[in-house]
Nucleic acid binder design. Structure first.
Length: 637
RNA sequence: GCCGAGAUAGCUCAGUCGGUAGAGCAACUGAUUCGUAAUCAGUAGGUCGGAGGUUCGAUUCCUCUUCUCGGCACCA
């Protein structure tokens, strides 16, 4: 006699055990049709799930997030079914739900082609239209293994073999096809109406690069065609923001085959780069950091001592001279320890905060390179803080304050914080880890920050806090980091003389706010869709005349603004004003200053903002004031 | 690095079922001196990523290679 409590608090009583579908039908025929699954308590179940005791139940439809997951999961199954139908000798493996869609990995004797993909999609459409019932059954583990082995599905059998023998295995079937699955799934394939196969890719079996490479097909699936269309539109919009496009279109930078993963910064891109670097430089200087410069190339022995040669030799560029081996630095820290070691330090000197905008090279695998986001040569807003264990907490707090300040200036306020603690393989005594992790945790809590624990994700030499931010279209980028290091100062013999006259090893904090400047610029460009805030814009305004009569006046205005420190271009070409405005608008220049005879007579300029707003005729003083204010506030235009 | 796809003018792209290529924008020349997102006309521009092979002939087919793109693994 189950009593079913619905989300609105209403209750329905039945005199026999009921399925989720029964309850939905009892509520109304519309809901019965739309029901994809049910949520009993916290568990999402099939509509065929039988409820015999009192329960809280929500009927899940495509409008529910859980409903979307069910649709995506079922669409993955639909795809696997289609693949097996078209390519019977393909083997199925796993097919989970991911953000916005799903994928399924297959093993097949040849690679799938884009033509195969559209054939699979067509076939999926037919299977969905056939509205096949999806049914769940159970087998004992050993029977399930035997079943899949018999079907020639060796990967599936392997997965099931790793499940405890006493557990029953859930099988979902539709038509003549069955897959091992926890479920839940839609009641019939007719509920799958809005999906699209997106791309083909390789993926290692069980995510291990020593294993066979499988073929992964990615797809997206939604509750209805409209949502699918909206998603595809969002993808197009994201593509338009691709920072690599702005590299060429705005003449900021380029990459070429002779220097894979290493950026050629053009005039305008380098201006942007320098504005950012100098901005951080000033912030660090105000924050009590010293700035240093260390060599690009250091002897092998130093990298052996630091441990890098042993661990990362594949990923370092090396060179030689007169029988000596050198490595081009992949990081600044060993160099900083050399400066630290040059002289004797008292505990009174600590903390020492040492910053460097040093150019680093890492020989990243070729397949990982990606525009500015993943490069082989980069500069970080890098610094190392040498301090005592007792100073960790305060230094971390100071750093976070600085970081928030900097992020806000760049227009990012949505910061995501992760604390990563000791990994299995690590150096340093557990007592030290206890202390360090507690210190980081305590700082985060004291500052009242939201953070997530990533247990076991710390570096081998110490725990760390990572800072990510969300951009304007919701993508998350990890930028900042604060890593505690108990290993390197000791390896490289850094010491200080403590209060009691005993030499002790300082703790070293590796920290960066923006991370790689290259990558940060990539993130900025995508975040702002190329329309940079005034203070960052490589060209802040263009002054242009209507005819040649205003040439001298244009030059004078431009000169005045340049003297105030603004980045100004002038356009004296004999072109129509419409063309000039179009071209500079396309270049995303924050302000266009147009002068004709009228402005020349009045000593004013006609101001036009990047978004097309006509700000009317203004005096040069008013414009200067506006610009200075924008820079001071670092506000978006 | 691995799987797959791609590389054609400065940029964006079309094309050639094997007979050495075409558009728009940009560039250059000329005309136009014009009031807020494209003035008109003309000219020039390519060893079709690189190397090798098949062929009478390769930008096209094959092999290798470099780089790029999408993933996977990696990311001190």
């Amino acid at each position: 006699m189950p009593v079913i409590t619905l989300p609105d608090g209403s209750q329905r009583q039945f005199d026999h055990a009921v399925t989720v579908a029964d309850v939905a039908a009892d509520i109304g025929p519309g809901l019965a049709k739309a029901a994809l699954a049910g949520r009993v308590g916290d568990t999402v179940v099939d509509t065929s799930y039988l409820i015999s005791d009192d329960a809280d139940l929500a009927i899940i439809t495509a409008r529910d997030d859980d409903g979307l997951d069910v649709i995506r999961h079922s669409t993955a199954h639909l795809m696997a079914q289609a693949v097996k139908q078209l390519f019977p000798s393909a083997q199925i493996t796993i097919g989970p739900v991911i953000e916005n869609g799903f994928f399924y990995d297959f093993s097949y004797e040849r690679g799938f082609t884009p033509e195969d993909l559209s054939a699979i999609e067509t076939s999926m459409g037919e299977l969905a239209k056939a509205d096949l019932q999806v049914s769940r059954s159970e087998l004992s583990r050993d029977d399930a293994v035997a079943y899949f082995k018999d079907q020639g599905e060796h990967y599936k059998a392997e997965i099931i073999e790793s499940i405890p023998a006493e557990e029953a295995i859930g099988l979902y079937g539709q038509g003549d096809w069955k897959d091992l699955c926890r479920g839940p799934h839609v009641p019939s394939t007719g509920h799958l109406k809005a999906f699209k196969l997106m791309k083909l890719a390789g993926a290692y079996w069980r995510g291990d690069s020593d294993n066979e490479m499988l073929q992964r097909i990615y797809g997206t699936a939604w509750g209805d065609k409209k949502a699918l269309k909206a998603y595809l539109h969002r993808l197009e919009e994201a593509e338009k923001r691709d920072h690599r496009k702005f590299g060429t279109a705005l003449d900021l930078f380029h990459l070429q085959p002779e220097a894979p993963g290493m950026v050629f910064w053009h005039d305008k891109g380098w201006r942007l780069y320098l504005v950012i670097e100098n901005y951080v430089r000033e912030k660090l200087s105000n924050g009590g950091y010293q700035e240093v410069r260390t060599p690009q190339i250091l002897d092998r022995s130093l990298w052996e001592k630091s441990g890098h040669w042993g661990k990362y030799d594949e990923n370092m560029f090396t060179t030689g001279s007169e029988k000596r081996d050198y490595a081009i630095k992949p990081m600044n820290c060993p160099g900083h320890v050399q400066i630290y070691n040059h002289g004797l330090h008292s505990y009174k000197d600590l903390p020492i905060r040492m910053a460097e905008f040093g150019s680093c090279h890492r020989n990243e695998a070729s397949g990982t390179l990606h525009g500015l986001m993943r490069v082989r040569n980069f500069v970080q807003d890098d610094a190392h803080i040498f301090c005592t264990e007792d100073q960790i907490q305060e230094e971390v707090a100071r750093f976070i304050e600085l970081l928030k300040d900097v992020y806000a200036d760049f227009g990012f306020t949505d910061i995501i914080i992760n604390l990563s603690t000791r990994p299995e393989q690590r150096v340093g005594a557990d007592a030290l880890w206890d202390k360090a992790e507690a210190a980081l945790e305590s700082v985060l809590n004291t500052l009242g920050l939201d953070w997530t624990l990533q247990a076991g994700e710390g570096a081998f030499y110490g725990p760390k806090i990572d800072f990510s931010l969300k951009d304007s279209i919701g993508r998350v980028w990890q930028l900042g980091t604060m890593q505690l290091d108990f290993s390197m100062p000791d390896r490289l013999d850094a010491q200080y003389v403590d209060r009691d006259g005993v030499k002790r090893t300082p703790v070293m904090l590796h920290r960066a706010i923006l991370g790689s400047l290259e990558r940060f610029i990539g993130v900025l460009l995508e975040h702002y869709a190329g329309i940079l805030p005034f203070w960052l814009s490589p060209v802040q305004c263009v002054v242009m005349g209507i005819t040649h009569r205003q040439d001298e006046y244009v030059k004078k205005i431009a000169e005045t603004l340049k003297k105030q420190g603004f980045r100004v271009d002038l356009d004296l070409r004999n072109e129509k004003i419409g063309l000039k405005i179009r071209q500079h608008s396309v270049q995303k220049i924050p302000y266009l200053l147009v002068v004709g005879d009228r402005e020349m007579e009045n000593g004013t300029v006609a101001l036009r903002a990047q978004n097309g707003d006509d700000l009317g005729s203004q005096s040069v003083e008013a414009v200067t004031e506006l610009f200075a204010d924008l820079v001071a506030k670092r506000s978006r235009v």
